[in-house]
Amino acid sequence: MMVFVIGGSASGKSAYAEQMALLLSEGMKQQKYYLATMQVWDEESKKRVERHRQLRSGKGFVTIEQPLAIHRALETMVCLGATALLECISNLVANEMFSEGTPKPEGQVVQKILQGISVLNQELANFVIVGNHVFGDGILYPEPTEKYMRAMGIINQEIAAMADRVVEVVAGIPITVKP
């Protein structure tokens, strides 16, 4: 079962995605993984990561830090029948695109991430993916940001097509977009 959870900032999407991962893996003995993508570089990101750790603590997730090359999470996971929660696509795209010097081409980033996700999906019993709805402010951004948005737009659409369910979270309320 693959579920794509999308929402704006502070929409409650993470809490919902976590609940979903717990629900899907209920009664299963296999491991639950949390695939973390955030790179910590300042006090604010440290706090953010800490808040999410608090949310997850005691729920039995094994955290794998995978800010780049998401497919490589396979090397650490015992996949057969496992459940994974990937948080989130927006960090992953930013990391892949902007981590090294000049930004990587959109197509390359899209392909790498989608391949990684599809490989993981084949191995996992349940895969919950968190996406960020950054497309609703109507502001025109400089080219690198627009490039980032376009890449993420395509990735989100492809994940939504692959997913069994797509849910938008608004003010903590889940709205089913793809049943």
Binding site: A10, S11, E44, V134, D137, I139
Partner: peptide
């Protein structure tokens, strides 16, 4: 709804979005 955009560069704007959310 103000949280459906690119994360702002300005720290106060980020705090504002977070708080409203």
């Amino acid at each position: 709804e103000i949280g459906n955009g690119i994360v702002p560069m300005d720290a106060l704007e980020r705090e504002y979005r977070e708080l409203v959310g």
